[in-house]
Write a protein that binds this DNA or RNA. Structure first.
Lengths: 202, 202
DNA sequence: ATTTGAACAAATGAGTCAAAAGTTCAAAAG
DNA sequence: CTTTTGAACTTTTGACTCATTTGTTCAAAT
């Protein structure tokens, strides 16, 4: 029975994932407003009322769709960072791979461009706070390792994590504005080296 | 005649300044939409049509009002920075005084909170680009001095100026969101020290 | 050079309405 | 017991009208 229960849950979770993939394409192509539940149901070959078996409402569907992508993004970078030995190199990889990921996932990138509210500098209007707290955890780990290894200055971990995450979001906002992508990547590079110099103890 | 011309221009400029001061109070109190040209004219003791002798239209009045404040802000900080000898202290003063200024000018602060578009990370939707380019000039000067004195690493001045200005705007956006003011000021302090360490050559 | 009043133009808010989209749920299907 | 459906219900949207307010212009007066 536990077996059956689990397999059923898996089926539901799998179909939800299918829905989220379809929704991702739709939202990227038409935007939130122009995409209807019926559109997505049709593409899935089901009726729109059935969508409500998987999500609570349209907004929930959208947030599950975007949130799903953000989680994969975060976890991918987290895994890649873990595999790097040297702490300075780890920091560089964390930054560069995070930006590369966004550029190579066009649907997510399009959604982000059309919905600037996804990245916000104000914590209390962050619709993906929980996910972002996890992303901050990646930064925090790197700082902690650097400090405990004696490679970094003994900075205040919490404040510095907030600071670096805010700078990261600032760059994401800048890259989300279609124009000026070239100048931003130069700024990211310069910023990474400047901050690494500021972090590293002599 | 040159004398007369000049005094007349001064009168006009002076009255424009009066209008901008009245408009500042009004816009801070009621916001852009709820403030009418008639409100301001009445407060000035003139008719609304006369306002158009000083400004082109309502939007122009608003931008002159805000722009005027931004220019005073920028110039005040610029003057204060000039008077500091030591380059590191100069950098610290530039940052701390810029934030203190905003907090001590409540009308400007209120307007900024109600119109988040005043501070934008996207250059091509910056309504005050010209003024902000001047503000960046203050940063650029400090960087140039630091580098030419050999106190700072020979960083790329243009890219680093862009970077620091973006971080500055990021902080302004965060402080414009009523909440979390305390945590932001700690981040500004931490950020200033981190960046100074990254800038300073050993 | 400044100011005004009167006239004109544009924007706004309230109200109506039908169509479209979102949502619920009892019953059917598997 | 899980999943799906069709039909009914509710909410939102967009198009339209209309009176009022607000923004803007300009010739004439100060």
């Amino acid at each position: 029975m536990s077996q059956k229960f689990k397999s059923l849950k898996n089926d539901k979770e799998t179909k939800l994932q299918d829905i989220l993939q379809v929704a991702l394409k739709m939202f990227a192509r038409y935007g939130y407003k122009k995409t209807t539940i019926e559109d997505i149901a049709q593409e899935m070959g089901m009726t729109k009322s059935n969508i409500y078996f998987y999500v609570a409402n349209k907004k929930d569907l959208y947030e599950k769709t975007v949130g799903n992508e953000l989680i994969q993004w975060r976890d991918t970078i987290g895994r890649e960072v873990e595999q790097v030995e040297d702490i300075v190199e780890k920091f560089r990889i964390m930054v560069s791979r995070a930006f590369e990921y966004l550029f190579s996932h066009k649907d997510l990138h399009t959604i982000v461009v059309n919905d600037p509210g996804i990245f916000t500098l104000s914590r209390d209007q962050d619709r993906f706070l929980e996910i972002n707290l996890g992303a901050m955890q990646v930064i925090r780990m790197v700082l902690q390792q650097g400090v405990s290894q004696g490679r970094f200055y003994p900075v205040d971990i919490d404040v510095t994590t907030d600071l670096l995450f805010s700078i990261y979001i600032m760059f994401l906002i800048k890259t989300s504005v279609a124009s000026e992508i070239q100048s931003v990547s130069r700024m990211v590079e310069a910023g990474t080296e400047l901050i690494l110099r500021g972090l590293c103890a002599p």
